[in-house]
């Protein structure tokens, strides 16, 4: 069995011919394409989280809704807030980076 990295590389390498662009700005089109690919990755991650939640709910003998609606305590909320800000900084770096006119 081939590794998933080799498999993905094989798909990418086996394309032939040319590809037509639709946007006036090819860079923008590539970014759109990356964003859509991330949308697909996010959907796959959400499926994994959902699967875990179902497993845990079953293990705890709890309803799925109860598990999902369990409020975060103050410490957890603080931790999530920090994680959120860090993620937003990572994702929106280009808007703030002086080298990109931010």
């Amino acid at each position: 069995m081939t590794s998933r990295i080799d498999a993905i590389a094989a798909v990418i390498q086996s394309g032939r011919g040319t590809r037509a662009y639709s946007l006036d700005n090819r860079e923008a089109e590539q970014v759109l394409s990356i964003a859509l690919a991330l949308l697909v990755e996010l959907a796959a991650s959400n499926d994994r989280i959902d699967r875990l939640e179902r497993e845990i709910a079953t293990l705890k003998g709890q309803s799925l809704d109860a598990l999902r609606e369990a409020p975060l305590d103050a410490d957890a909320q603080k931790e999530r807030q920090e994680a959120l800000e860090a993620m937003q900084l990572r994702v929106l770096r280009i808007l703030m980076d002086p080298r990109d006119g931010g």
């Binding site: 081939t2 998933r4 498999a7 094989a10 759109l32 394409s33 859509l36 690919a37």
Partner: peptide
């Protein structure tokens, strides 16, 4: 229209990415 066209092309490429990875992973079998 331009944004749809670009997004549609990208989605079409992702059809092949999404099926290609398991195909090449499992090709020998």
């Amino acid at each position: 229209y331009r944004m749809w066209s670009a997004a549609n092309r990208s989605a079409q490429e992702m059809i092949w990415m999404s099926v290609g990875e398991p195909i090449f992973r499992d090709r020998d079998r």
